[in-house]
Design a protein around this nucleic acid. Structure first.
Lengths: 204, 204, 204, 204
DNA sequence: CATGAATGAGTGTTCATTCAT
DNA sequence: AATGAATGAACACTCATTCAT
């Protein structure tokens, strides 16, 4: 029942998963408790349904990310994708938060939802690898970090109340693009030889 | 009572704030319910205490971040800070999660804890501003994004079970450093004219 | 609707009256909830219908019990009746159980069904009285006891899983027949004087 | 908590197990829901406790049954035992009924309680076997039948409202005693030869 | 200071019953 | 006559909190 799913989103948004009473959801959806349990076997089951819904939406994000490179076209590509991501995130923010709440208690749900998120970051990792990222960047960790940044950035902005507008997305995009594709930046000085050798050298 | 605070951390880590019963904490601390309410007026009050504790620890992180610039010394500085941050985050991970759980329901707690986190990111913003970051980077948003990235990256790694080791921290540091200080990177091309005009041009 | 009555019997047999959900019955009968309430105003009403059905069946048992006396023909008569009784009991076992479950809560139903059972035992009482039972036997109590024994014996056998076969029925018949018609058996010695006096006598 | 056990007995007696609300029990015991679940993990668990209590009481009945024979002393022995049995049954009548209600749904409980009842009837079976019962009596089936009779007789008397007084117990005792130990009674005519032979004979 | 038995408001869930189609 | 989606009253159970000892 769509009405219930929508209502649940609203209530989760307002009070969080735990504080959300079935009664609240049911009242907002203008249905009865019976109807709730007709469509979902659980409060958790309802969340699971929302997670799946969000997951399929997120899955489409995978395909929307074309080749990303150091050039301005890469930036544009990334920026467009960022918009979609931001939009999707904001739509499903309550679900993401609820998932976070529950994932710890229920490892199964954690795994289920994690695989969805993993889809996005692994696609991103592939794109980064394709583009031949700079030295010192592990595509997988980098992709995870990017998703993490965008995710949490949106979350924090919810608290400050400030919107995630174009300017913010531009900054995010720029940061990500630079982070991944700027070979000239200062980086960790490569240690030469083993650390034992290094120590020995310093003693000379 | 230290025993209670420590026990609470463990239980929060295991089951999350909501699923954590006072009974669990009390049993682990080998005290009684009565003692619990002798020291804390609430389960929430206990969390508040932990948040304060974490907050003071985090506050010291502020002072540990020296000037950060585009040069290798900047990278080193950032890397050292990242280590401290990572360590602190991992120590207080359960508290951070619990806060996240509650912040939505209890705006007051949200504000209190947010100011702590805000301290870190505002110091970082100052450092970024001091270093004269590249065009297209808003120091405040950038600082927030960086903290967001590190925060969430750690959280996600908890789920995958993979540790946040030196390699991961190196990658994070490099990404952050590049993101902030690489003037030569491709950046958002300034749009000329309206998008309608642009489209028209492409048709020629 | 016969389908519903049959289905109800099956479900009552499987799960008992209380645990039997209308949903179960309806599903087994391959009809809908609506149909159920078209024919019965209640779950209890359905049971009432089954009790009536069982009652009429039991009523025929009355007429099947001919004169019973101490002689072998009496035994045969009793044995034949026992077979019919056993058969009927096993057919309506779930109804009897359900009635038992409910009778306490709903005195009206209790009375209704009790009258049915009462029919059997009163007929039996009449037969016993006709046959001139031995001294020390109250026909009414005896008849009740016999019905009670047969009833419960069947019930207990359901639990042990052992069938109520011919051997068991033979034993039951023999017990009943002996219990009622054996004048030579030892019986309650009429007490003479106080027990102290009795003891004294025995010492002589 | 004795108060709870006692209250539960009363409520089970009044309304039966299923209709008995935890609230009823708790109110009668003048405690709270919390206290209930402090001592019992379930409504079912409470019943289990009562069943165990009744079981131990019933177990003592085993030892109170001395040798039983066809003579008047046997009758006296049986009569004394019958009194104890009747008393115990009446004390635990609600428990027995509740068990009956549940046993079908919960096989485990059924087995547990059945073993208690089994103790009594197996002891009785032993006594019967010792006394050398008459031909045509299977000690085990007979013992079961006796217990069944007494059990159900009491139950039915609850409905009619008539008390189980000394007269009734006398009648029961006499019936049982006669049923078991009266060799001269008419009994099932021993069939000679196989049933095929018998049929053939009848055709002559 | 410490205890832990007792509390009861709050909540998820079930299931008999209804009624628009 | 038949359906089955919708209803909501009723109930078992939890757990943060208190207070007499």
């Amino acid at each position: 029942m769509r009405k219930l799913l929508d209502a649940a989103m609203v209530v989760f948004a307002r009070r969080g998963y735990h504080a959300a009473r079935v009664d609240d959801i049911v009242k907002l959806a203008k249905t009865s408790h019976g109807t709730f349990y007709l469509y979902f076997s659980n409060k958790e089951d309802l969340l699971r349904a929302l997670v799946i819904e969000a997951g399929t939406e997120v899955a489409t994000l995978d395909q929307l990310l074309g080749p990303v490179g150091p050039d301005p076209e890469g930036w544009q590509e990334l920026r467009a994708w960022m918009s979609r991501f931001s939009e999707a995130w904001q739509r499903y923010a309550p679900v993401i938060r609820a998932w976070t709440d529950l994932a710890m208690t229920d490892p199964e749900l954690g795994a289920q939802a994690h695989s969805a998120a993993g889809g996005v970051s692994s696609t991103l990792a592939k794109r980064i690898a394709e583009a031949g990222p700079d030295e010192g960047i592990d595509p997988i960790a980098a992709a995870e970090a990017v998703v993490a940044m965008i995710d949490r950035f949106h979350y924090l902005r919810q608290f400050t109340g400030e919107p995630v507008d174009d300017t913010a997305l531009d900054t995010l995009t720029t940061m990500v693009h630079r982070a991944l594709f700027t070979g000239t930046a200062a980086r960790k000085p490569r240690p030469r030889g083993s650390s034992a050798v290094r120590k020995a050298r310093q003693m000379l």
